[in-house]
Write a protein that binds this DNA or RNA. Structure first.
Lengths: 113, 113
DNA sequence: CCATCATATGCCCATAACGGCATACGTCAA
DNA sequence: TTGACGTATGCCGTTATGGGCATATGATGG
């Protein structure tokens, strides 16, 4: 088995830097594909593909606007991610102490060798 | 070009469900590879490989403990992720209203067709 | 030194990822 | 209808992925 399909969950969808950039841009409001592509320096097909992934995991929605198709943010899917990562909050403060302990262990180990 | 290497950034590293499970387990404290593998129902080489990725992005550190090698959490790398996702916080509350607006747009579009 | 336990690596496979490119599709205006 | 614009899709090639398996490497105790 290879990697799980990108479209299967939000963690995977936002693992791609360009997709994260798209999401950031969309915070400023809806935008057509071409504009996104241009602002991010990617090709139109490229942008379309990334947008498709984002749409399939529900982070983005689209609506027709005349000839164009406007993409807009739907950030609700990011909430679980925020919560999951938040579950480690107390650890990234604690980490420094732990790291200290770790370093001391290292020193000791080195002495014992 | 394919996707950026998993080992290059934290977003990619935590895109893998099993690696997320490992991180969660490690919140309870340091553990040797074998134990992790067993608790998560994966093979020892499998666990080692995931741990390597986590180590390379700095989410995990290891120290020798006799014959064993204990892996421990270093959650500091998750902080930027939390912050990035947190940048969307106001949007996932706002989303419902936006969605309403969206639905109304849809209705109108449909009427116009 | 040797046997044993713990872990890491290497190799292979099947799969899917991204990007580039051409082109199909959809929509509007004349 | 035709043409022009905006967007999506399909196909290809290269590359990385994750899993399985065998095996190398490391550390310990006798």
């Amino acid at each position: 088995m290879a990697r799980a399909a990108t479209t299967s969950d939000v963690f995977n969808a936002i693992a791609e830097p360009q997709r994260r950039e798209i999401l950031v841009l969309l915070r400023a409001g809806e935008r057509p594909v071409t504009e996104l592509a241009q602002e991010l320096g990617m090709t139109q097909p490229g942008a379309s593909k990334h947008l498709r992934v984002l749409r399939e995991v529900g982070l983005v929605r689209d609506r027709k606007a005349g000839k164009q198709r406007l993409y807009g943010l739907d950030a609700r899917g990011l909430r679980p991610v925020h919560e999951w990562v938040g579950g480690f909050e107390r650890f990234w403060n604690e980490s420094f102490d732990r790291l200290d302990a770790y370093v001391q262990d290292l020193k000791q180990t080195r002495l014992e060798e």
